[in-house]
Every structure is written in C-alpha cells, then in structure tokens.
Design a protein around this nucleic acid. Sequence first.
DNA 1: CCATATACTTACCTGTTTGTAACTACTATC
DNA 2: GATAGTAGTTACAAACAGGTAAGTATATGG
Lengths: 118, 118
Amino acid sequence: MEKAFKKHSEASCKQARLAIQDTLDVVGGKWKLVLIWVLGNGKRKFNELSRDAGISPRILSKELQELEINGLVSRTVCNTRPVTVEYELTKYSNTLSEVILAMHKWGVTHRKKITGKA
Amino acid sequence: MEKAFKKHSEASCKQARLAIQDTLDVVGGKWKLVLIWVLGNGKRKFNELSRDAGISPRILSKELQELEINGLVSRTVCNTRPVTVEYELTKYSNTLSEVILAMHKWGVTHRKKITGKA
DNA sequence: CCATATACTTACCTGTTTGTAACTACTATC
DNA sequence: GATAGTAGTTACAAACAGGTAAGTATATGG
C-alpha cells in the first residue's frame, strides 16, 4: 500500500528522478551528510573534523571542497601560526535539516528494528 | 549558524555517523530512492519499472533484490505465460516517506535556486 | 522452425569512491 | 638543526557503482 506518497504522473516520475538525483549529487556519498551533522556542533578545524567524523584527510579535503562549492560550508583561514582553517556550516545548509534529520532518524529506528534492541 | 540542529555530544557524532551511514547502506546509490518513488505509483512489472525509472535491466534487478532483502519491496511471481513478476512497496517502505519527500523537496528547491527558475 | 515476449543473467567495461602511506610548505620553539 | 604542529597533497591501490550488449529459459502463436 502506498499511503505515504501521492500517486504520480509519468512526468512526475521523471521530475522526481531528477530531483532526487540532484540531491544525491550534492550530498550523496559516504561522508557529506556526516560532515554536515558534525559541523552542526559548531565550527571545526580540519584535524578536529577528521577526528570527530573519523574520516581520512584526503577524503575530508575533497568532500569539504565540494560542500564549499555548493554553498553548504564556509572556509575561513585564521591568522595563526601555523596557519589554521575553520570550517562552518552556512545558512543555506539549514535547508538540508529535514533531509539529515530524516536520514538520521530512519537509521536509528531501522537499526533498532534490525537488532531488536532499544 | 547551526539553528536546525541541536548541539551534539561526541558520542552523538559517532552515533549519527552510524545512523546516517546505515540509511545510506539501505537506500543509498543512484536508483533506490527513485525506484521507491516510482513504485509509489503502485505495483509495477519489471520492464515497466525499467522504462518508468529509466534504468538498465541489470541494475534494476540488482537494486530490486537489495530492496527486497531489506523489506522495502515485495516481489510476486504471477501465474502467467510468459512468466511476469510484480514489484510493490511494502508497508515498511512507508517509514522512508520522510526521507524521500525531504530529498525530493530539497532537490526541487535547490534546482530552482541554481537555475533561477520557478 | 521462427518470431515474439518476459525477466532477468552474464561478460565486459569504464569511471568513481574511498582509503593508506608518505610527503609538503610554512611557521614556531628549543 | 631537530622537533612539532597544521592543513592539506600526492601516489598508488582496491573496491564499488553503473552501464552496454548479448544471451538465456520458458512459453505461445503462426
């Protein structure tokens, strides 16, 4: 039974595919939503992010650049020595809150269902 | 500013990573959410799904098997000749409605922002 | 026997993602 | 000069995702 979704027209299917895959283009992959979640704690430095998220520096650098390009994260070079850089969520990243919270919530509930644990 | 998220503890970061990546394990990739959306129109046969979603048979078969294993889609072999098979969303797939709707909605809005079109 | 239909499966392939390990540039401190 | 710190970068590699094209098993109809 498909109660949670409205019936879609054929054009709606094409448009839905486009919309969903657009979202995946921006925040798909193993780490991007995790990084956004972690930065929800507040601005972080590169190594802090690497540690808090548990991600390798090479991938972290790559993902942060993409998130910055898409306007979801901002990068600030601090006037310190050695140089430090701070990463912070942008206002625009708030538009992803429903996506992230839904993903997080579903993952938690699904794991409980799978393991039978609460 | 991180208004959309609550501040998280360190343990919360690990747990969030787990939850988000669990969700991605089940519905990540290019096609799974699209297939779930398309099946929101009602049960479909294999070739209908391939056409409606615009996906190749090899990948469709693979993704449907994974969705079936995770209890999101059911597969019914019909007593027809040649044999036909019907795929349908399960009740459990309704739990993904927030995820899919959020992804879809964000994709639509993001595309409007990017293209400046309404 | 051939053509057609359905639901895949198989073989091969390309491109991408993610990770490890080592390295780099620059500065400060001892 | 050696050491430490930071933020990456580079080279290499394995695994994975998704696609194309051809093929398969079974049945029906002409």
